[in-house]
Amino acid sequence: MNDISQGLLAALRLIVTFDAELWEISLRSLQVSLTAVIIASAVAMPFGAFLAVQRFKYRRLIISIMNALMGLPPVVVGLIFYILLSRSGPFGVFGLLFTPWAMIIVQIVIITPIIASISHQAMRELWAEYHDLLISLNTSKWQRIKTLIWDGRRNLLTAGLAGFGRAIGEVGAIMIVGGNIEHATRVLTTAIALETGKGDFALALGLGFVLIGLALFVNISIHWLSRTERERRW
């Protein structure tokens, strides 16, 4: 009990004094996960809209695969990309293993199906609503996708935030491909794992608070978004 309360106090001190290490690790976490979310969204959101608008032969199969990929175990994704990115692997020449880019890549792989699936769901509902009008107005495929993305922007932001929440809290895959290297690839989750193992609860808890803060921020944002979605204020 004493350990924990001391740890809590020390953690709060680290946070309020903007401890350099804590700051650096938090910032890197944000950088990696935000980059992953932006890249994944750029692919997943138009793809979700496309799946909603376009009928084609293997559409159902692709949707099933997309939903199955959501359940991909991150550790296995990490392992596969470790092999792909290692010196002797097919992408070894790029020297990406143990860099932030390796972490970004595995996070993209993990969250793209999630963002695509949530986006597709939202776009499908909107398409059901808009279908008749957009057909009647003789819109092109691309105009339809643009309209759905714009009018469904709040739902899409929710999808992005869900992806971000998943990315920022992920530890298995980025541990493997990032290596948790100090001043290079150490992020919130991997640092917490390490500091807990070392018994430095102060730093571990401090990092934990930041992580919880970010997760809370994401959830409150999603909540707030779904409220404004109902009220349609923007």
Binding site: E129, L133, S136, T147, D151, G152
Partner: peptide, 8 residues
């Protein structure tokens, strides 16, 4: 249309 389609 019978039930008007209203864009969001």
């Amino acid at each position: 249309f019978q039930s008007p389609v209203v864009l969001r």
